[in-house]
Amino acid sequence: MSLRATLIDEIETITRDQGKAMPPLTDELVLIDTEFDSLCFALLVARMEDRFGIDPFSTLEIADLPVTLGDLIALYDRSSLAGAA
């Protein structure tokens, strides 16, 4: 599964488990405007770390903070490339 597909799969799992109603997961979606709260974020970061061994949030600059789902995917993409390099 690609990183993008995994991330979306995890978001869907977490929101289902947490009973959150989510709009369609498009790249433009601003996650913080949805029911995806800080605990959901924390779960997502932990699960992505378990699956890929990367945690881009632990070394994040303010300017890099993801706003949209597309930003989040890009952040993980960069982190995974940096990890592979």
């Binding site: 800080s38 605990l39 924390a42 779960l43 970061v45 932990a46 945690d55 949030f57 632990s58």
Partner: peptide, 8 residues
């Protein structure tokens, strides 16, 4: 340790 909530 968790970067969002401090710990989970």
């Amino acid at each position: 340790p968790n970067p969002i909530l401090g710990a989970v």
